[in-house]
Design a protein around this nucleic acid. Structure first.
Lengths: 220, 220
DNA sequence: ATTATCTATAGATCTATAGATAATGC
DNA sequence: ATTATCTATAGATCTATAGATAATGC
């Protein structure tokens, strides 16, 4: 593998494990056993590395959220979308952790991320529309559907922070992909009141598979 | 005012305006026109300053979320709780922005914040219970009520990040308390399907007051 | 010839303390 | 006497570059 790609890969790994804020260009170079000078030969600075990693993330999610126009949607499709989005969040989990700082530091990233969010919201909205067409949920007015889509997005993008800050009783290192996917339980909770009688039971069974194991309130 | 209190106040102000990550002990001292040495006379380090500020935040929210045991809850109470929580978020808005890093840096804060979250979740849960008692929403099984409470919490604590990252078209500095409170619209959206016929219209009118003005998709 | 890499380092911070001095409260 | 403050600074990073050297591809 080319050094340039190794830098991107190691950076992602280190960012995910220890947080972007805790990783400097020195750390990345040291981890790869190359000189800092070499790293700066391939990238102008840390921001450029992050920007490229974001573009990978964006492409991945865009690819998964490509909603078919020509056919009806199924419960299996819905499961796939949810699983994929949480897979993406997991692989690039450093990103949302320091999102605000990253966007403040790089105008390109701010612009791209805003558009990315809009695409995701539009995709969620379209999924709600197709779920209604498929008779899985009751159709809702556009106004409500948009607000619901936004709530889905807020729950999805905040679930990991919740796990890392409130759930984990000790070090945050212990977070697993399985726990992360329990966020699907929370997303499906949002849809319960809108389910059609025909699908209600099937969705409840699906939801049950992701039930989070919440911690006891910590002892005083 | 005592220098110690001035340090706490200025720190909060600077953290909120420019982000905790961008503010060093030097910045705080310079802003107050005192020497760094003086700052370190009053606080052992930045973490200690943040910990005290968190305790203020915690006390404020605990005070607002004191749910009365002896009487029924009204729609005005609900409005008060929602407004208060967003007021608290606004006053200490730096906190959630860098939450994960802050908790990783200070075990006391991690422990306290976890308990704080649990108290907030319990309060939301209790509010749902009392709303049902008051005939504002339909009663729901405990299982569902807990999941709903968690979703409310996820929406509340992520709304500001959404505004700052996706909504704001230019600099993040422009965020206002009014925009922040439009998060109430999103929270009330979660409750719509559970409203009783008697209260449905009144809650919809209340919700309408907080309707967010969402941005157009940015031009390419 | 061009591309990739290393060594060495300047310059910019930041944290935190030691030690001297000034201000305050009995 | 005690509390509050300042000056000065050591020590630890981190970013980013200049300039030399090594490796690679025609």
């Amino acid at each position: 593998m080319k050094t340039r790609d190794k830098i991107l890969l190691s950076s992602l790994e280190l960012f995910n494990e220890r947080g972007e804020r805790n990783i400097t260009t020195n750390h990345i170079a040291a981890h790869l056993a190359i000189s800092p000078g070499n790293l700066y030969y391939h990238f102008r600075n840390k921001s450029d590395i992050i920007y490229e990693i974001f573009q990978e993330y964006e492409n991945l999610v865009d690819y998964y959220l490509d909603i078919p126009e020509d056919r009806a949607i199924t419960l299996e499709d819905l499961t796939f979308y949810l699983e994929s989005v949480f897979d993406g969040l997991w692989s690039y989990r450093f990103f949302h952790r320091d999102l605000e700082y990253l966007l403040d530091s790089d105008p390109r990233l701010r612009r791209d991320y805003r558009e990315f969010t809009n695409r995701c919201l539009a995709a969620i909205n379209r999924i709600f529309g197709k779920l209604a067409e498929a008779g899985i949920i009751e159709p809702q007015p556009e106004e409500l559907r948009s607000a619901m889509s936004l709530n889905v997005w807020l729950v999805i993008t905040n679930w990991m922070a919740f796990l890392k800050t409130a759930h984990a009783s000790e070090e945050s290192a212990s977070l697993t992909l399985t726990e992360l996917k329990q966020g699907i339980y929370q997303v499906l909770t949002l849809e319960i009141p809108y389910l059609t009688p025909e699908y209600r039971e099937r969705v409840m069974v699906l939801r049950e598979k992701y039930r989070p194991v919440l911690p006891e309130a910590a002892p005083a």
